[in-house]
Amino acid sequence: MGTLLKRHRWIAPYALLAPGILWLLAFYVYPAFQMFIASFWSGSLEKGFTFSLANYTNYTETINQFAPQYLRSIVYAGAATVLTFLIAYPLAYTIAFKGGRYKNLLLFLVVAPFFTSFLLRTISWKIILGDTGILLGPIKELGVLPEDFRLLATPVAVISGITYNFLPFMTLPIYVAVEKVDIRLVEAARDLYAGPWRPGGGIAGAVVAGGLAAVLGIVFAWPWPILAAGAALIGGAVGWFLVSESFIRVTFPLSLPGVFAGSLLTFIPAIGDYVNAEFLGNPDTRMIGNVIQNKFLTQNDYPVASALSFTLMAAILIVVAVYARILGTEELTTTGRV
């Protein structure tokens, strides 16, 4: 083997690639192709399916009939991605820069939920968000919230569930990126008069938090002016006190590759997720994943389910392409080299 590899060095890269390629061919390319064919079938499980190139009705049906679920998936996944980012960035930053000797322990705690099943964790959120659960129960007891106020079976619950479940996927890439930022660059920035970022940080914090709350409020028909004002106040305070100019000019731009990777790792699986909507939502919060799951496993409608999946793939590709264009991936990869 050794002499063979020595004599035919060109083999080595192919030999190393072979297991991955074979695996993907067998379990990804072939099923995807099969599904692509199936999306042009017509018929039913009982009568048998027939293939027809003229059959585009599966696609027109999916797009016309399930547009609300598609839109909802994008909104929920998008909101959850922004929320995971807002939670994960300070978390990753703190672990990387202030973690000290507890760094590894803290990182372990970030991934510790993975030791429990994804389903179990999502179901346990039902208990937390339940109408008289540990979160709402005491508040209602105090009379702060009306008796019929609920979180479970609302978009809030679904988005919270997604946010929680994908937090590690956002935290770890950001951690890796922030940890790589040379502390001497931060010192250099401070040496070059980068101090606290006021009032810029306050304004930026208020705009980001207020804007996000306003968008969510309008989408879900909540009393958005109050929400936006409250969020802007909190965001403004955080920005005013915590965001420095060296962070906004150096650390943050240099950690963008991690933000980019983390948001893709969160957004793409989240948009197809159906577990959170299934357990934490109601019929009006069904995402496209729920429809696909239902079509495939309950109704055995393979042609429409396949067409739904391919339409979803196309939607994700378009969203990611736009996102990559905005964030400029090429720029990001070159900044990685120091």
């Binding site: 040379d182 001497r184 660059l185 010192e187 250099a188 920035a189 401070r190 040496d191 070059l192 008069y193 980068a194 101090g195 000019r249 150096v250 731009p253 240099l254 900044t335 080299r337 120091v338």
Partner: peptide, 20 residues
């Protein structure tokens, strides 16, 4: 005083140029 309030500047070992 913090570095950004001092009228001194530093040339760092390995330069610490901002790569981005």
């Amino acid at each position: 005083l913090p570095p950004y309030r001092r009228n001194v500047n530093t040339v760092f070992q390995n330069y610490a140029l901002f790569p981005h």
